[in-house]
């Protein structure tokens, strides 16, 4: 190993190293592997990915290069039955490859911590586990309302990604949307207007506050273009806060296995200009206002569930949540 390294091979090593470093730097920035980023938070996450990709590319080239080089250069020659040099270690080298990775992962950790904090991941109200609350048993209110957990200061607590430190300063209230995951659909309720929808419509440039619950089994609410994901847990309420900054149509995917048709549990997120969003909201309110008496079936997960079922439930001795369970999990009841 300690063969004399002559000048020309030193230069070769140096040039290879520089080329590998440059390539890593370039590839980290220009890998094009991620879909578009539709929020500032998403761009931040992409920044971490770029850094990690740069480091990973460098290490990849280093190790694979060493392997390939060894396989070619240090191949045993025919007839050579002797052993290699008895080098059993090199303390400075070992210290280097312990210390450098330690520093690198610490840097990545600190960077990730910072981004996560900026995203609102450490928002006190949105990053603490209130523990399981009662669910599915109680009749009466719509699912979610009994899930609220309060800290001693009567403040709302949930799990997930909340407001970033800067956003907390802003006077503007976020747009609240209640998200309910059931096998195999997402149902979005806009408490401000009472609109219930199977697709998510959001205005661009405004804080969004999603309160996520699940009606039957675990689901996970994933917005790939926003790099956000949070499990929907029956019995808990979880939260995601973000601000779309790019108009467009994005996918909403369920990422936690929730049954046979887990693969179809997806819908569309429409990020619209504030005007378009208002227009849509108005339309929905008109369309949904007068339908209850005429409808053959109403979604029991909407705000109107209790209202809709109360008289029947009383007469039949069936609690509304029981009905909801039955409707929400057809495969579950079938296989039981």
């Amino acid at each position: 190993m300690r063969k004399t390294v002559n000048t020309s091979s030193r230069i070769t090593i140096l040039l290879t190293g520089i080329a590998a470093t440059l390539f890593s730097l370039w590839y980290g920035q220009n890998n094009g592997l991620l879909p578009v980023a539709a929020s500032e938070d998403a761009s931040q996450v992409d920044g971490i990915f770029s850094l990690m990709m740069t480091v990973a590319t460098g290490l990849f080239l280093l190790i694979q290069g060493a392997l390939l080089f060894s396989a070619i250069k240090f191949r045993r020659r025919k007839g050579d039955e002797t052993d290699g040099p008895p080098i059993a270690g090199n303390v400075p080298l070992e210290i280097a490859w312990t210390a450098i990775p330690t520093v690198m992962v610490l840097l990545i950790s600190v960077y990730s911590f910072d981004v996560y904090n900026t995203m609102g991941g450490l928002d006190r109200e949105a990053s603490q586990d209130p523990g399981p609350q009662k669910v599915s048993y109680r009749s009466g209110q719509h699912p979610g309302s009994e899930l609220l957990a309060f800290d001693p200061g009567q403040k709302y607590l949930a799990l997930g990604v909340g407001a970033s430190p800067q956003q907390k300063e802003e006077p503007e209230e976020p747009l609240p949307v209640e998200v309910n995951g059931i096998q195999y659909a997402w149902i979005f309720t806009y408490p401000d207007t009472g609109v219930v929808s199977g697709e998510l419509h959001l205005p661009v440039g405004r804080q969004i506050d999603l309160k996520i619950t699940a009606g039957d089994v675990l689901h996970a609410f994933w917005l790939p273009e926003f790099r956000l994901k949070q499990d929907a847990v029956p019995g808990r309420e979880t939260q995601l806060r973000f601000e779309p900054n790019r108009v467009g149509e994005y996918s909403v995917v369920c990422a936690e296995l929730c049954g046979a048709y887990h693969g179809v549990m997806k819908t569309t997120l429409h990020v619209q200009t504030p005007e378009e969003y208002e227009h849509w909201s108005q339309e929905q309110q008109i369309a949904q206002a007068d339908k209850l008496e005429n409808s053959v079936a109403a979604t029991p997960n909407s705000r109107s569930a209790s209202e809709f079922l109360a008289p029947y439930a009383e007469r039949m001795g069936v609690e509304s949540q029981t009905l909801e369970q039955l409707k929400a999990s057809p495969t579950a009841s079938a296989s039981n």
Partner: peptide
């Protein structure tokens, strides 16, 4: 060679903000 790739992606998914995107 192959374990290296798994190890590098392992460090990536350790980062919470990135893992939130790629989890599951």
């Amino acid at each position: 060679s192959a374990f290296l790739i798994g190890g590098l992606s392992g460090v990536m998914v350790a980062s919470v903000p990135f893992d939130i995107h790629v989890h599951d």
